[in-house]
Simulated scan of single mutants.
Amino acid sequence: MSRGDDGGGDSSAAAYVFRVTVRLGPDEPGVWAEPDTFETTVYRTADSPGEPGWLYFRDNLWRGDCGDEAHMRAVAEDALGVAVDSVDFRELRTTQGYLDDLRAAVADDLAEFNASTADQALSKYLGSSIHVTDEV
């Protein structure tokens, strides 16, 4: 799934994909970078439905965007170890198996999402930013 994984071909894998603008600000006098900002793609493994952290989409996204960009910038800065100017959510990249498991977990507690169907709940948080693929 990612460079840190063993590539075992998990059929129920997913990752949140973000476009992040980072800023380099060297601490050393007389050292600078050009350009001092650049965009990169950042991936976060999606936790398995029902496991701790699986509600990441509910807690951080809204209608396919970051719900609180300042918070997401701080999270990205902590994870990357560099200053972050902006974070944009791009998609939940998922296998069909993971999406099926996610829908089932959401359907088990629709009241938690204030929705009448799992698809309505997922749309509320992820918008139309779900990309189903064979390999994440």
Rank of each mutant, 00 (worst) to 15 (best):
M1W: 09
M1G: 14
R3N: 08
G4N: 10
G9Y: 00
D10N: 12
D10L: 06
D10V: 07
S11F: 13
S12W: 09
A13I: 01
A13G: 02
A14R: 01
R19T: 08
R19L: 11
T21Q: 07
L24C: 03
D27S: 04
G30A: 04
V31A: 03
V31R: 03
V31E: 04
W32P: 00
E34A: 07
E39M: 04
T40W: 00
V42A: 01
V42Y: 04
Y43F: 09
T45Q: 12
A46G: 04
S48G: 09
P49D: 03
L55Q: 14
R58F: 09
D59F: 08
A70F: 10
V75I: 15
V75N: 14
A76G: 10
E77I: 11
G81Y: 12
A83K: 15
V87Y: 10
D88T: 14
D88P: 07
L92D: 10
R93S: 14
R93H: 12
T94F: 11
T95G: 15
Q96D: 15
G97W: 14
D101T: 13
R103M: 11
A104V: 13
V106K: 06
V106E: 07
A107F: 10
A107Y: 10
D108G: 14
L110Q: 07
A111E: 15
A118Q: 06
D119K: 01
D119I: 02
A121E: 03
L122D: 01
L122N: 00
L122H: 01
Y125D: 00
S129C: 07
I130K: 03
V132R: 07
D134N: 08
D134T: 09
V136Y: 04
